[in-house]
């Protein structure tokens, strides 16, 4: 009897890719006389990756259900302003943060209900809420950035453990661990995969697909709100246009990590690797002094190559 699952190269390809990218940058940078591979820079990369990694959790679960959420970047911007204004007006920081998470949840609820009960395509719904929420971010402070609020909020991002490990890493580790466990060891998690794999079959198997879909968008909104809090804590400056195009980075991280855009397949654990790959590229190219425009081009190409490599197995089978 065959119990062993075949170990497949393509299961590991993303780790190989990540190590490869580190390797390439180390060599090029040291040839250029610059220092890429040291503990500080690695921590730097991880810290840079952390906000996108949190957003990418939301992107991943939504994509797993076969949907998409384009509104998360706007949520990041909105939450930043909202939080800054609230703590400026003297609201205790924990209360302000909880309010932000509720905002994220409400936006997610709105998206989710329109998509699941209203049957509006996810792309359209969240494209709309992306615009609307961005508009709200502009409105609440008349389009002005907010500064001059108590800076204690910075502790949420700037704390370091043992003098090296940034606290952003902790958020990533905690949220990913919890979500990975939920996805692979609960009925809710299985439901997410089933919904993306075949919503009819999931429904007829007794999964409450509509309710589940709404919850997934709520979670996505809450992760986006948390990412917004993180961004404010890092920048200590709230700009209504903050977070624009973050949704694309989050989706890219999920896709590089092998989450199938048509839903139903993929591992959340690989999404974090996708986020690290993206951050490494940005960081490495910056160290090499490559102009921003080229950075964007290269990042875009990496996304395509990653998906191409990931689909290799499927192509081979035919």
């Amino acid at each position: 009897m065959k119990n062993k699952h075949n170990i497949n190269l393509s299961d590991w390809i993303i780790y190989i890719g990540m190590i490869g990218i580190f390797f390439v940058f180390t060599i090029i940078c040291s040839a250029m006389g610059k220092n890429f591979l040291n503990i500080n820079n690695v921590m730097n990369i991880v810290n840079q990756a952390s906000i996108n990694a949190i957003l990418a959790i939301g992107a991943s679960i939504v994509i797993l259900t076969g949907g998409i959420d384009l509104s998360v970047g706007s949520v990041v911007g909105f939450v930043g302003i909202f939080l800054a204004m609230n703590i400026k007006s003297g609201m205790p920081i924990p209360v302000a943060i909880i309010l932000c998470l509720i905002c994220g949840a409400v936006i997610g609820l709105f998206n989710g209900i329109l998509i699941s009960y209203g049957k509006v395509p996810a792309f359209i719904t969240t494209l709309g809420s992306m615009q609307a929420v961005r508009g709200l971010a502009q409105i609440i402070n008349g389009g002005q950035a907010v500064s001059g609020f108590p800076l204690e909020i910075g502790a949420l991002m700037k704390t370091k453990f043992f003098g090296v490990v940034p606290i952003g890493v902790l958020y990533v580790v905690v949220f990913y661990t919890v979500m990975i466990l939920i996805l692979s060891y609960t009925k809710f998690g299985r439901g997410i995969y089933a919904l993306g794999g075949n919503s009819h079959a999931a429904r007829l198997s007794g999964i409450k697909v509509k309710k589940l879909e709404v919850i997934v968008y709520i979670l996505c909104g809450m992760f986006a709100a948390f990412a917004g809090v993180m961004l404010l804590a890092r920048l200590l400056y709230a700009d209504p246009s903050a977070g624009s195009s973050y949704e694309m980075n989050a989706i890219a991280a999920a896709v590089i990590g092998g989450i199938s855009m048509s839903g139903g397949k993929g591992k959340l654990a690989n999404t974090v690797v996708g986020a690290i790959i993206l951050a490494t590229l940005t960081n490495g190219l910056q160290i090499m002094n490559v102009a921003t425009y080229y950075q964007t081009v290269i990042t875009g190409l990496v996304v395509i190559v990653a998906v191409f490599a990931d689909k290799r197995k499927e192509r081979k089978a035919e």
Partner: peptide, 15 residues
């Protein structure tokens, strides 16, 4: 309506 074709036999039976 019956199966999630992209999922394993075990996952389908469990659903």
């Amino acid at each position: 309506e019956g199966l999630i074709l992209m999922h394993s036999v075990a996952e389908n039976i469990a659903l």
